[in-house]
Amino acid sequence: MRLALLVCALCVLAPLDAIAQRGAAANTPDITGSWERHRGGPGQARETIPPAAPQPPLKPEFLKEWQDRNRAAREADAKGTPLANNATLCLPEGMPGMMGATFPMEILQSKGQVTVIEEAFTQVRRILLDQPQKAVDDVEPGFYGHSVGRWEGDTLAVDTVGVKENVRYQNVPHSANMRIRERLHLVTPDVLWNEITIEDPATFEKPWTFTIAYRRMPGYQLLEYICEDNREFADENGLQKIRIGPTER
């Protein structure tokens, strides 16, 4: 009798579960696939191009640090002796830099998770759906941090904490407590906007919000990217140098 009840319960629950899964898939936008940065150009609808990012609203002391660093980089470039940076060392961009999609980017939607892969440096981040966010102190600092997300209607809202202080987007300083909020939504079937808001009361006077747009790359499969032989290096003065000379055939 008990067995019969259990079987009966399974008969009822199994289809409900299947319906729930189908329902979720039917109700959430399909953003799976390859994307590239969308900056406009011939044949592209102007209204799909987001406005340019404003300057980061840093507190005065951090704004000065940022401006001094940028000026030093510009002056070093003008002298033809660029400063070394994370890219010189072949380090990945981390968050939110990888969402700038300098190279093509792939989004994969699976049960309970949205995965973003950036072709450059084979960067991978996992957005855990419908999970509570951890306290910053419970996340080991990393390049991508800990991301949770949920669908709010047609918008994927993502919250990220735990990005290392030396992982900087456009050299902008931040504390270990930085929080990145993202709102991803399709503005046309083939253009995706990511409204990014960076909150960090220790370094910012107010949240910094800017939008990055992507367009679909139908049929494009991401290529491998391994920093196999980086000939660029930082010398003892922090300048970018390069190893040249004959190598074995």
Binding site: A76, G80, T81, N85, A87, T88, T102, Y225, R249
Partner: peptide, 29 residues
Amino acid sequence: LAHHSFAMYDHTKTITLKGSVTKFQWTNP
């Protein structure tokens, strides 16, 4: 648009090399 700076290179002139390939190093970055 670029990860790496190309400021190490002279932007004011080019030179044309005609020669023989000894190796094509197909690597990233």
